[in-house]
Nucleic acid binder design. Structure first.
Lengths: 153, 153
DNA sequence: CTCTAAATTTAGAATGATTCTAAACTACTG
DNA sequence: CAGTAGTTTAGAATCATTCTAAATTTAGAG
């Protein structure tokens, strides 16, 4: 991903493109692995030793506030971040922890109970066992691995 | 809600109906306000002074594990609990913090990406501003109030 | 009714993601 | 070069949740 292009996008969204912001947003754009703040920090701090975790949080919230990043609440104890802001859902494998994009067709009609509400965000989450954990597929994208199993039942 | 009926349901789901478990599940059944663990604790500890917060967590996870309760990940920093296990979504008002049930018709077809996965749970969340906060409805159900605003922008 | 083992509950400590704070640093402006 | 606003930093603080080991309660056997 071209660094200049990332910079341009940030500017377009009224975000001053500091070095750290570029690197963090670039990480999200290149590795579409729905990382946690800590995963981003651990990966970038190797190249930017002075990087602070607070900067990662600050930047992620800034990006989210401007609509460049979506915050996923699919994992229990930590937020995950996604630079893909197009409408789509997510699947969490509760065995290996991987998160996959879910695209769908069709629509939900007549959302009963929301007649007079404004909707700013929608989230669609699925949880279960992924194809690899079921032994039906070979692991393909090494960037999408998770730290470890969360569920051993 | 009849206490004996609650007891029966617990037994049906292979949960030994101790006093605390009955009270906690009864709370969830009566007050359909999607409470946090702390809200349940604060409410019940007034009548059961010896109640421990660990018991609330233990019981909620037990109920969730048996399928009697759903854990909602709609709020950022805390889990919410719902005794209604029928398929439905939820709406969070980011201004007053209230959570409303969302029922819908229609279906999502062709969940691309999940072809070889098993799905154990699905969650549909919306966030926005509720009818009351928009001034279009009068507050109706006092049991569904939240602690305070989470968003003042 | 008493004893015993298992299950349940408890208080408080520990954990860990996130937020806060105040200071240090950087980049522009004049 | 000084001033100001914006950015970054380390480390402390917060807070929901989990863990731990002990205390208590329950159920069943004798």
């Amino acid at each position: 991903m071209d660094c200049g292009k990332v910079e341009q996008t940030l500017r377009l969204y009224q975000i001053k493109p500091s070095y750290h912001r570029i690197r963090i947003y670039q990480y999200l754009l290149e590795r579409r692995n729905h990382p946690s703040a800590d995963m981003i920090f651990q990966s970038l701090v190797r190249e930017i030793p002075s990087l602070s975790k607070a900067t990662v949080y600050n930047t992620l919230h800034l990006l989210a506030g401007k609509g460049l990043v979506r915050i996923l609440g699919i994992v229990d104890n930590e937020a995950r971040f996604d630079a893909d802001t197009m409408l789509h859902g997510h699947f969490l494998c509760t065995f290996c922890g991987c998160i996959q994009d879910v695209h769908f067709q069709g629509a939900l009609n007549d959302l009963l109970g929301l007649e007079n509400c404004t909707i700013d965000e929608s989230h669609l989450y699925f949880k279960g066992r992924c194809a690899v954990c079921r032994g039906l597929e070979q692991p393909l994208e090494p960037g999408d691995e998770a730290a470890g199993p969360e569920n051993s039942s």
